[in-house]
Design a protein around this nucleic acid. Sequence first.
DNA 1: ACCCCGATCGTA
DNA 2: ACGATCGGGGTT
Length: 169
Amino acid sequence: MAKRLERDFFNRPTLTVAQELIGKIMVFGSAGGIITETEAYIGQDDPACHAARGKTPRNAVMFGPAGVSYVYFIYGMYHCLNFVTEEDGAPAAVLIRGIHLIEPSPLLLNGPGKLCRHLGITRDHSGIDLTEHEAFLVKDSPFTPAFEATPRIGITKGQDKLWRFVVRG
DNA sequence: ACCCCGATCGTA
DNA sequence: ACGATCGGGGTT
C-alpha cells in the first residue's frame, strides 16, 4: 500500500519536488492516476510565477505552507491545479499538467485545463492541505519514469528556464 | 467600476 | 499557427 506524501516531501526546493512528483500517484475523490507532467514556478525572481509581483488575494496560498493545493482560474474557462512548495513564506508551487488516470477507468489527461475539467477541480479545491485531507492527496509509488526537461508552456516571460518536466515517450 | 489579459485548448 | 473565449484580478 503506497504511503501518503507528507509535508517534508513538498517542503523542499521546487525543482526537486517537480521532478520527483513525476510517477507519483494523485488521488482526488474516486479518481487516481500517475502524474506525468509538471512545471515549477518559483518565487519573486521568476517572472512567470503568479507571485512575481508580490502577495495578492489570488496567490496568497503560494506564500503559505507546502503541501497545500493552489487552484486558479484562467482564460475565462479553465482551472489549473498546483501543489505549494518550499518553506512557509516562500511563494512557489508545482503546476500539475498531466495525469495518466488509472481509476476509475484509464485515461490520459494531458493538459492542466483538461485535467481539472475532467476531475471537477475548481477554486473550491484551492487551499486544501494534501497532507490532511482524506480524499485529496498524493501517494508514493514504485514508478520512477524517465523524464525530460523543457521550457514551460504558454508563458511569455521566463522561457529560458527548463522548468517543465514530462515523462519521456 | 472597469479594463485587459492569460501557467489553455482544439482545430487548421 | 491561430483564434475563441470571458471571468476576475489588479489597478483606477
